[in-house]
Amino acid sequence: MVIKVNMKLKGLLTVLAAVITMLVLGTIYAWSIYVPRLIMEHGYSTGQTQLIFGVLIGIFTVAMVIARPLLGRWGPSKLAMAAAIIYGLGYVLAGIMGPGFGIMFIGLSLLAGVGTGVGYLISISIPVEWYPARKGLITGLVSAGFGGGAIIESLIVEGFLADGTALTRIFLVMGVIKGILLLVASFFFRRPAARQTLSPLMPMKRLIKDVKFLRLFFGIFIGTFGGLLIIGNLKPIGGQYPIDETILVLGITVFSLANFTGRLFWGWLNDLVSGKILMPLSLILTGVVTLMIGLFALDSVFYLAMAFGAGFSYGANFVIYAKETAQIYGLDNLGKIYPLVFLGYGISGIAGPYTGGWLHDIFGSYQPSMLVASALCVLAFVSMIRPVGR
């Protein structure tokens, strides 16, 4: 009985550690709150601000792939500890030596990106090993943390900015706090005894010939392209219109809240409805939202409504594709194959935000990039509703 209780407690603590880790790592979605200050006070172009954000997402997903064999060798706790140190060092570097573009790129895009990827891999793959019958719900709960972190950071950082605190000071303080939280959480990651021995990695050459894998890969790429484009530029998108500064900041919180609740909702729904249905549904929802932003002028209410719609549909990607990967390839292979699926998100992390910033620098508007994102979603939707042969 004592052993059973202890094992149950370890599982609960692992889930809690994963949620805390994801809350910290998900603060990157508050990036757009820094963008106006970087542009106005430090001479960044819009493209440069989105390059930092986008490359972080790209490094994040590459780090997941690199870390997957280490997860078996080191175990989740030691690997999470390493991720916490690397992540914290990235922010501290930006805080001490920033805010020049080169230092910010190294500290946030590279170091924090590596820490984010390693921490995300552990958090998304280990908790479901404790609760295999509730893969959708657990994946939704854990990934909701990643969606909710930006709510907390945007509120804290807005307070700092309102007081006139220097960006370097903000990065230093936030880096120390988040690094400590990640380090504490790392001590509570445990793997079920039955899962200590892992099966071999599946060869990449076999996966890239698999139509089901390619559908997952391109689905998450296009599904997150529009969402990343929006969250990376959300405040400036609203800033094109006569919308109050308070509402612009509130939009980041609304997106994050919708992302958070969306992940919980899609996770719950995905235990009831097949991913084959939910994947195209989430894509067309994203397509509708980006089309509306591209076609219509925004007022305060419409801006907040679009922020919510974008966040809600965006959150689906981080539940559905993880659950579908486990369904197709088995739970034992989730930590091995999902990082490769997730590379699609990494590519969109660079392509989405940077496309928004680049097209804005050319046309002086975010509308063209919204229309591009919408068109991609429609194409992916049509592709998804076509049956896949066995």
Rank of each mutant, 00 (worst) to 15 (best):
T325I: 03
L25F: 07
A80T: 05
L283I: 09
L121R: 09
G238D: 01
F260S: 08
V184W: 00
G98L: 09
G102C: 00
P353S: 05
V2L: 14
V249S: 13
L269V: 12
L79H: 07
F260P: 03
M64W: 04
P99Q: 09
G262Y: 00
H42V: 04
L264A: 11
S123M: 11
R191Y: 00
G102A: 15
I247W: 04
K205D: 12
V273P: 06
G232L: 12
G136Q: 11
G364F: 07
L70E: 02
G115N: 06
I39M: 15
Q240N: 07
L281A: 14
T355E: 02
E41P: 02
I106A: 13
W268K: 13
M306E: 00
W31V: 10
I126K: 05
G239L: 09
K212W: 04
L340P: 07
I33S: 05
L56W: 09
I231W: 05
S186R: 01
G364Y: 07
L283T: 10
L25I: 15
Q327G: 03
R191N: 01
L108M: 12
Q327E: 15
G315M: 02
G72D: 14
I138Y: 05
F302I: 06
F213Y: 15
Y345D: 02
L38R: 07
S123E: 08
A166P: 00
Y29N: 15
S32Q: 05
I170R: 09
G147I: 13
A185L: 04
V388H: 03
G309F: 05
T261E: 00
G239Q: 07
G11A: 13
I85E: 04
W130M: 08
Y131F: 15
A82I: 12
I122P: 08
S186L: 03
Y321P: 06
G117P: 10
K135V: 15
K336P: 02
